[in-house]
Amino acid sequence: MEESLEDRRLALAFLERGDEGAFRALYRRHSPRLNQFLLRLLGGRERDAEDALQETWMRAVERLRQFRWESSLRTWLGGIALNCARERRRQDEGGEASEMGEAAAPHVEREIDVDRLEGAIAGLPDGFREVLVLHDVEERTHEEIAQMLGIAVGTSKSQLSRARRALRVRLGEGGHEQQAV
């Protein structure tokens, strides 16, 4: 794929010569996507997302020489970003949030405002939000998610089901906060 070749060319220029221009090109190619991903994982907290994005690049540069190009650079960077976001949350919150109650909620059959959806995702417990963002927004497979999160594929599937139910509850509430249990 052409995009992948360009990533590889830039990465090689950076590794061989410490080329600042090549790094900046890589940064500009991937940071908008990573930034949005991190913002969503971190519930819209921009400062945390920035810190996590910086840490993502620091780690990526340190490990780039070991990257085997068996996946796309975007996928690889996304995995690093996910870990950075998780660590950032632990620092801020002192641990993973508890899960939300999953009262049955019907499918949303009316059009959904994007801002409202974004708010509902941001309000999900961390575990639900991760799986839902990775699967339904980033379009990762359950196999990829299982690998990234260190969980079983079945767990990823069940977490997604519960995350979707929790999301529908939030959307059905008209944006009111739901108490985590």
Binding site: Q36, I112, D136, V137
Partner: peptide, 23 residues
């Protein structure tokens, strides 16, 4: 996902440029 849910998720932005200072 219902069609409405799918449409809403598909409409979410996938990119957002960080502040230039961050680079």
């Amino acid at each position: 996902l219902s069609p409405q849910e799918q449409r809403a998720l598909a409409a979410l932005p996938r990119e957002r440029a960080p502040r230039p200072e961050l680079e």
